[in-house]
């Protein structure tokens, strides 16, 4: 079984790699297969790990009838499929948007802004801390568009672009590293698991 799995994985890997030569039906077949399997897998996992324990079991085994409320709200989402009843889907949607906004706004404000601001001000005793503060101020200044970027203001915004370029460079470097890692993973699979050239 493992051998068969390895063989299928090898064939699919080569089918995907064939795209590097040129776009072809073999590659497209592998691509569609991935999409289909991903959706099928997701549905199975949802049914087995979510709908069964959280709905079926609670409702029919434990008799927790309150579960009917979220189930009905969820089913109302399907009302969008019919023009006449589509307005009913607004109820679960409005609940989701309201819940989402209410939960995420304070959490994001706290974690992404206040905590970050506080951290960037605490470390002013070190050279790194000063560089970070200069970087923050000059970069934010670059995104202030209500004043022409010239004179002293222009010099600060120019400094901001240098910081941005360093960030883009670092991100690109990490992206290359990440993609190379994925390629190493496939090559390791081909050479070790499929061809057994390396141990």
């Amino acid at each position: 079984m493992t051998e068969l799995g390895t063989l299928i994985a090898l064939i699919l890997t080569l089918m995907v790699f064939s795209f590097l030569y040129k776009e072809n039906p073999i590659y497209r077949f592998a691509e569609y297969l991935l999409v289909g399997i991903s959706v099928g897998y997701y549905l199975v996992i949802i049914c087995r790990n979510t709908i069964y324990p959280l709905v079926i079991e609670k409702l029919f085994i434990h008799g927790e009838y309150l579960v009917i409320v979220p189930v009905c709200l969820g089913l109302l989402m399907f009302a969008r499929l019919n023009k006449r009843w589509a307005y009913l889907s607004r109820l679960p949607l409005s609940l989701m948007i309201g819940f989402g906004a209410g939960i995420s706004i304070p959490a994001m404000l706290q974690a992404r802004i206040l905590k970050q601001m506080s951290a960037s001000m605490q470390s002013l005793a070190t050279i790194n801390g000063i560089i970070i503060l200069i970087g923050i101020i000059s970069t934010i200044t670059y995104f202030y568009f209500s004043k022409r970027q010239e004179g002293m203001f222009g010099k600060v915004t120019r400094l901001g672009t240098y910081f941005l370029m360093v960030f883009f460079g670092a991100t690109f470097g990490y992206t290359v590293m990440s993609r190379i890692s994925l390629l190493i993973g496939r090559f390791e699979f081909i050479l070790r698991d499929a061809l057994r050239v390396i141990s």
Binding site: A111, S118, A119, I132, T171, Y174, T175, S178, S181
Partner: peptide
């Protein structure tokens, strides 16, 4: 995390989050 995400998370380690 994957390397491509690393730069996004350095600020969170610097702040102790």
């Amino acid at each position: 995390i994957t390397a491509v995400m690393a730069t996004s998370y350095y600020p969170y380690t610097a702040s102790g989050q």
